[in-house]
Design a protein around this nucleic acid. Structure first.
Lengths: 210, 210
DNA sequence: TAGAAAATTTGTACTCAATACATATACAGG
DNA sequence: CCTGTATATGTATTGAGTACAAATTTTCTA
């Protein structure tokens, strides 16, 4: 299904995810999330409402760009851990938990310190809380699926309760989310994202692993 | 603001939450959640679409009746634990964790074994997964708030990291949710809800408490 | 240069959940 | 019968999201 033409054939794009994201952030600060329509965001970015949907699946996706990027990175990190796995790193449930917890910390470490998602930090002003709650669980579920797959690959040691595997995935994702929200809410005293994430997930990792 | 009349003055209700819920369950099984409009649910229950909103805040509330009841029960259970607290039961973070975990188990124990929420168990047929994900996190957040308030009342022992308190609340709610979903998905081999909840939250409670 | 193919944008129409508010209806009580 | 209360219904609207057709902008080839 290769194109017969060069990569630049066809009509050029007039906008980008970043342009739309920036336009949206401005408008949300000016007139709140619910007070801003998709048409307004698109217009400020210089395109039509319909074009918005060529860049984002839904309005709420505007709020989750960095998290979705981090989820892609987690997918990559867990796949990488799987391809470099040793007998020891997959021998026990506890060892697999260590791998997952390390991957979560590493992904958090990759996040640029200066890149703070406004939809989270300015959620009072923007009024984004309800939408974050309506669209957050699907992201958590994606992370959970990645982790469950990682724990279950190769086939989990017999005697490991599948409910405990799922429970671990759910708990560590929720704890990581709590850490991330804490980091986002910290204001000028904000430290490193990875510090907050690690602090939040440590008791989970030890409770299921140790 | 007491009424000047007896409890039965005014126009009698034509429907109830239960009638609407039953009508919805039938229709969702017949034609999926997204294939069923609120008007159709209301009509099958014998009322108009606008009346639906006198009983439920939104379409998705139909899916969460039992969970919302359980959250009310958790609120009650945690308030009760607070009013019967001893010096020992609030002395340490670990003791407070024990109280919370016991309350979660007790609420799960109250759930009638025969009452299995169809929107969860038949989510493939009904196509409810997306809506459950869109409306689940707000329920989890409510549970988290209840737990954080419980852990923080009376004022938490100094030296306890607020992020760890929040992380515990997030992790234990997520684990409990995983247990509940496991129970709902179990089919004919379904055991007790409280067994699955306890199995799922035990490593969380020990990891943050012990 | 014209036409074809590819990629993107825009237009038009629609669905439906949710909101707002007015009007109608069914009851109890005096 | 009238008043007050509680509930049901009607009408209109908004805006996110979907579907599909038409238009536009580019590259490439004969």
């Amino acid at each position: 299904m290769g194109s017969k033409y060069s990569a630049s054939v066809g009509r050029p794009k007039l906008s980008s995810k970043q342009i739309l994201e920036d336009a949206a952030a401005e408008l949300f600060l000016e007139q709140t999330y619910t007070g801003t329509t998709i048409d307004q965001v698109a217009r400020r970015a210089g395109v039509s409402r319909n074009t918005f949907f060529n860049y984002f699946g839904s309005k709420s996706d505007l709020l989750w760009v960095d998290v979705d990027t981090a989820l892609d990175a987690l997918d990559t990190a867990l796949a990488s851990a799987a391809s470099t796995a040793t007998a020891a790193s997959v021998a026990t449930f506890a060892a697999r938990i260590d791998t997952v917890c390390a991957a979560l910390a590493a992904v958090a470490h990759q996040h640029p310190h200066s890149r703070v998602p406004l939809g989270f930090t300015q959620r009072e002003i923007m009024g984004t809380s309800a939408e974050l709650q309506a669209s957050g669980l699907i992201r958590m579920s994606r992370a959970m699926s990645l982790i469950e797959r990682s724990i279950g690959t190769p086939t989990v040691p017999s005697g490991t309760d599948p409910l405990v595997v799922r429970s671990f995935a759910a708990a560590v994702v929720a704890a990581a989310a709590a850490g991330a929200m804490h980091w986002a809410s910290a204001g000028v005293a904000r430290g490193e994202l990875s510090d907050d994430i690690e602090r939040a997930i440590r008791p989970v990792c030890s409770g299921f692993g140790a």
